[in-house]
Design a binder for these strands. Structure first.
Lengths: 236, 236
DNA sequence: TAGTGGTCTAGACCACTAC
DNA sequence: TAGTGGTCTAGACCACTAC
């Protein structure tokens, strides 16, 4: 644990315990630096992290203010897979399709590979606490994810990628849209003909820029939404 | 313009000009610091910004790599209002409703105010290039936005807030969901009975933690989507 | 083993705010 | 005018990677 991580945790604790109440000003960076016996830059790095999380807001010439707890803190994101997102829940996967094929033009572009590079084409229904939750269609280049098995698909692909293959993600790009439901949604998500679905299109890329996944996730509109915290750094 | 902003711009230019091609390693931070005659920390700050924008990816022990241009750079966000988001377009607003009332319980909670504090209740159809684009319902505490007029509503509220009232936002929290269309959507967005809508629920808050806006935006599903770039800092 | 990026220090200067 | 946070320096140490 780095110093700034420890300090960020300490400040967070004090906010929770009411030592730094909502809407109050934190001690100045200089004062905190003296208290924690670190340089001011280290305090600033800790504060910057909490600003990004939506807990604090800094303004030059004024200070750093504790935001109201009403503002939700940074929402959980989806790049670690459903299993990491809902750790408490019982998550199962029903495999609808598990194929290896060559990518069509659209997928070649999405995955940034040639037409001769084989890909996995995986269609899964994720089931949370016994209820159909999300219908996922996932495409992955075979060479980046060797020896994928049905057994892995029934659990968490991401756990396998991270813990077994030691793969590290650099980022994900998502587009969220609404769509009419289709016959697959009706069948697997148990939704009504009139029901819309919330669809998340996701590209996951690695440190070296290669794209390891392109996927579309179709969610029941009444059970799922997507949240984003957007911190504005208009600077000072 | 700060030094690190200038350097970030310079690196970005070199990527665009192919001097730093996709998938290649940048010169080391030390080398860049010498070239630009700044400290390494300043170079790092420039690089960090480009990592957040999705252009670069750094890894300790390895270096900083240029990502494929396929990966979309940081998507435009919505906190500056539609007018800033679509600067090229001709944006008009049709005012459906413009009232002052007291907030109900749900809105008291969303805006974090008491029931005796008056709010604006604004219902607008935003029209882009002559086509219905999004149906916005906006709630704002009156004391934060004094003297709002129909004239302002017909243009951009955000421009008024930022340029006239000099108000600065600290952040926004959004939830994106799909919904069935209702009679307002049919009437104003011109959509079919079967069509879903993409709804964005947004809270905008200020530096001092006060919430200046809670709004719901309903978009035609076939004309709008919401994009997010999520950079993962698994550190090292 | 050499080179990388992440963290950290102890200073400094300055734009900005509130008074 | 005093105090704040943002930027910047010239160093240092170290975890990590590739060889």
């Amino acid at each position: 644990m780095t110093k700034y991580e420890w300090i960020a945790g300490e400040i967070q604790k004090r906010i929770q315990n009411g030592i730094y109440p909502p809407n109050s000003l934190l001690p100045s960076q200089q004062e905190l630096a003296e208290e924690f016996d670190v340089s001011r830059l280290t305090v600033k790095k800790a504060i910057d992290g909490l600003v990004i999380s939506g807990l604090l807001s800094s303004q030059r010439g004024v200070g750093t203010r504790v935001l109201h707890p009403t503002i939700p803190t940074a929402p959980a994101t989806a790049h670690n897979g459903l299993s990491a997102l809902l750790p408490e829940k019982d998550i199962k996967s029903h495999i609808i399709q598990f194929d290896v094929t060559f990518p069509n033009e659209a997928l070649q572009q999405k995955l940034q590979i040639s037409g001769t590079q084989p890909i996995y084409d995986i269609h899964r229904l994720r089931i949370v606490d016994g209820k159909p939750f999300v219908l996922e269609r996932t495409y992955m280049p075979v060479d980046l994810v060797p020896s994928l098995t049905k057994n892995i698909l029934e659990g968490s692909i991401y756990q396998y990628l991270q813990e077994e293959l030691k793969i590290r993600f650099a980022g994900a790009y998502r587009t969220i849209r609404a769509d009419r439901s289709n016959k697959f949604d009706w069948k697997y998500l148990n939704c009504e003909t009139m029901d819309p679905v919330l669809e998340v299109l996701q590209s996951v890329y690695l440190n070296d820029g290669r794209i390891i996944e392109y996927s579309t996730s179709r969610n029941r509109y009444d059970q799922n939404s997507y949240s984003v915290l957007d911190v504005i750094d208009a600077q000072n």
